[in-house]
Design a protein around this nucleic acid. Structure first.
Lengths: 251, 251
DNA sequence: ATTGTTTCCGTATGGCCTACGGAAATGGGG
DNA sequence: CCCCATTTCCGTAGGCCATACGGAAACAAT
């Protein structure tokens, strides 16, 4: 399915929800059975366990013991609910701000990765029109502050910011993709690749792929750890090199 | 919705389709009304125009003037169809192999970006269990050959490969996300951000976000081009710095 | 008890994938 | 010309999804 997108609904309503603008208590009327926080928490639990595909309005309502349509009293729609879920889990990063600028960016990358690990459905959430809530904003501030301390001039800070954010979210999404697929299909990544052993036997053409063949023969693919560990260390390497490049470009 | 995943179906069948293993012509039996190639082409057209969400089996069959279930005679299921679509559009990159290793990697990035631009639904396709067809394999060979020429030792070539692939696909996906959302919702990115002007008026806290405020005051956000252009140049910057880092790490 | 206000939620619409099994088309052998 | 094995075509049906609509139910104040 396509990426989940932010709702086109009333921005004022969505922003009030994201920042939990306190609503004046209603003096009259029926008492609510559920709150926005309960709905968001239940939705996150369902998505954590069964994926964003399983997080339907009916499923969340069932979890809370209310009717499906009751949710719409508290939340404009599913897209906005995903916005709320996203900002809540981004807040879990709880970013600490000491160390050099490089250390802080690596800290940011680690914490963001941890969010994706804990909530693999984040892979399916598009970040180009992000929820403008405290979780997202605190993260942006953290990275921008670090980059500003690096000595880059302001214009380049904003450019580097997009590059770093893109790398970190992309890397975290990639890493988690494998686990998510494993959960969704009931087949591990290693098992999946194993079942495709016949590719190397029947289709791989040594003449057509000399570079891959040479690397294979040089033992470059005789890795020790699991697939996931290899991917993880590759992204550590990539982030390091990206920061090296940014640092070097200033001297 | 969740990311589209590769089918857990019979790998041998899927590989035969990906590499278009010639089937012995059937001497008897009803003549097929459609071919695999026609199905894949029609599916790509639908997805290009209306997104992967609209690419349903029923929609593709309608496009071809056949019944929905007829497709299942030629293609195991939707997941495998997406694999076939993916490999076909990756083949469109048509990679040329001259220039320095850096030039070749930038060429690869540009051509891959072009694929995403032409086929925005690629954003929704997970690449952790990729279709092992000629389109993907040729790309891998191209990047690995370039990195091998850079002088990295074999072990590091495979590590750098994952980092570069992650960056390129992540960047291309990010760029395209905006257009895809614009098409899906009928609202451009600039318009979307404009509608959220009230965020800066009502919610942005100068005390809480000093780094962002300082950058704003320094004029770092007074960009000239569109949002899309800014994102594009940021990823060019990022790739350059990543390659700088890789290059510098060897000296 | 009535009224105003708010929340709860049953129903209905139109979509999705695909298992199943029978109908229709095709070419060769009698 | 008919029969039949083989292959493809496809209608039906089941179980999911989001959400518009409008009435029922709960509550406080009068």
């Amino acid at each position: 399915m396509a990426a989940e997108r932010s709702g086109g609904g009333d921005p004022a309503r969505t922003l009030a929800l994201l920042w939990r603008t306190p609503q004046p208590p209603k003096p009259v009327g029926r008492k609510p059975k559920v709150s926005v926080d309960q709905i968001v928490t239940a939705a996150i639990e369902v998505a954590d366990r069964e994926g964003l595909g399983a997080m339907s309005m009916a499923r969340v309502a069932q979890e809370l013991g209310v009717g499906t349509m009751s949710l719409y009293t508290h939340v404009p729609g599913k897209a906005e609910l995903i916005d709320l879920m996203t900002d809540v889990v981004l807040q879990e990063r709880d970013l600490a701000s000491d160390g050099t600028w490089r250390e802080r960016i690596k800290h940011y990358a680690d914490r963001t990765r941890a969010v994706y690990q804990a909530h693999p459905w984040m892979r399916d959430v598009s970040m180009v029109r992000p929820p403008l809530g405290p979780g997202l904003m605190d993260g942006q501030e953290f990275v921008l502050a670090a980059l500003a301390d690096s000595g880059l001039e302001p214009r380049l800070v904003t450019v580097a910011h997009v590059a770093v954010e893109g790398f970190v979210h992309g890397a975290a999404a990639s890493e988690v993709d494998d686990q998510q697929l494993a959960a969704a299909t009931g087949e591990s990544g290693d098992s999946w690749w194993g079942a495709r052993q016949i590719f190397w036997d029947d289709y791989f053409d040594v003449e057509r792929y000399p570079a891959m063949t040479a690397l294979w023969n040089a033992g470059a693919y005789e890795t020790e750890g699991s697939l996931a560990e290899h991917v993880h260390s590759s992204f550590d390497f990539g982030l390091d090199k990206l920061l090296d490049g940014i640092e070097g470009g200033m001297r």
